[in-house]
């Protein structure tokens, strides 16, 4: 008889593993992906494909180069690629899109130790780097049907109407415009327990409250920019958001406040990326403040 395997308990595991979680995120992103192609055409598809390919390839090459185990099958690089593409204009030069992926994967993720070790969300950080570089306005000029158009959040832009913003047929980054698709994805993630409600609800709720106080157009503030994409898919990134539910609420509120500060007082119309990036950096401190107390462990 063969030797028996002797391992410590437990001897069973829950179904979800890192790959299945990332797969669920991709499934949740699918409606917005389809919407982006419908709204912006085949160019949107190209940007996403290039971002994903560049992300996966740079992860593979980097890990090979530094002799780390190759982890591209965990699908996290694919998620990063899709998310980055979702916050780019559909007509961005493809080399800029690819460069963004390389920055996200190599600089933000791998140089800090790979999955689970990055202090900031790779897609968001890469986007912010691209924004700062500017590329002659390639990152900030949005168009629809080939005509240069301001996003609903831009100063002086007209409200395109609730229906348009819900379905997404307005200018913006390619994955952020269709609110309906993003909400469907968010519900999927909640049902699959990939994310909890704390961050999205705290984030979106804070934006709504501040908008009302500041007498802003609520529909534009909630649906006209990158809020839903950010609150559902980016701010909920495990690695860069707090662990406990209380921490998640604090983090969500912080994201909301910072977003509105940029939107109301900042030099740019949109503040989601900056807000999440800043809160990413605060996450270790929030974690420290919101540690669980052991059951029955009041006195050491």
């Amino acid at each position: 008889m063969k030797l028996l395997s002797v391992t410590p308990a437990p001897h069973i595991w829950a179904k979800d593993d890192t790959q299945s979680i990332m797969r669920d995120v991709l499934i949740a992103l699918a409606p917005a992906f389809i919407a982006s192609i419908v709204i912006f055409g085949i160019d949107a598809l190209l940007v996403t494909v290039v971002c994903v390919a560049a992300a996966v390839l740079s992860e593979f090459i980097f890990e090979k180069a530094v002799k780390r185990p190759v982890t591209i099958t965990d699908l996290s690089a694919v998620v990063t690629g899709v998310l980055l593409s979702f916050c780019l204009p559909y007509d961005i030069p493809l080399w800029i899109a690819a460069l963004g992926s390389v920055i996200a994967i190599v600089v933000v993720k791998q140089l800090f130790g790979g999955i689970g070790q990055n202090f900031a969300n790779p897609a968001i950080t890469a986007r912010v780097v691209l924004l700062i570089c500017g590329f002659n306005g390639a990152m900030t000029t949005f168009s629809l049907d080939g005509v240069s158009t301001a996003t609903p959040l831009a100063d002086g832009a007209a409200n395109p109407g609730l229906a348009v913003m819900f379905l997404g047929n307005h200018a913006g980054s390619l994955g952020e415009t269709c609110a309906l698709a993003l909400i469907i994805g968010g519900i999927y993630l909640l049902v699959r327990k990939v994310i909890s409600w704390h961050i999205p609800v705290a984030y979106i709720g804070t934006v709504a409250v501040v908008s009302l106080i500041a007498q802003q157009d609520l529909s534009i503030q909630l649906l006209g920019g990158g809020l839903l994409l950010g609150a559902i898919f980016m701010a909920t990134d495990y690695t860069t958001s707090p662990m406990t539910n209380v921490g998640k609420l604090i983090y969500g509120v912080g994201c909301g406040l910072l977003t509105m500060m940029v939107r109301l007082w900042g030099a740019t119309p949109e503040g989601v990326s900056y807000a999440i990036l800043l809160m990413n950096i605060l996450t270790p401190h929030i974690d420290k403040l919101t540690k669980h107390k052991a059951f029955g462990g009041e006195k050491a």
Partner: peptide, 23 residues
Amino acid sequence: AKPATTACIRCGRCVDHCPMNLM
């Protein structure tokens, strides 16, 4: 078969499910 161990992704499930509220 024991599944392969990979890097912690800080998902927080261990924190969320501990009956003793440990981390």
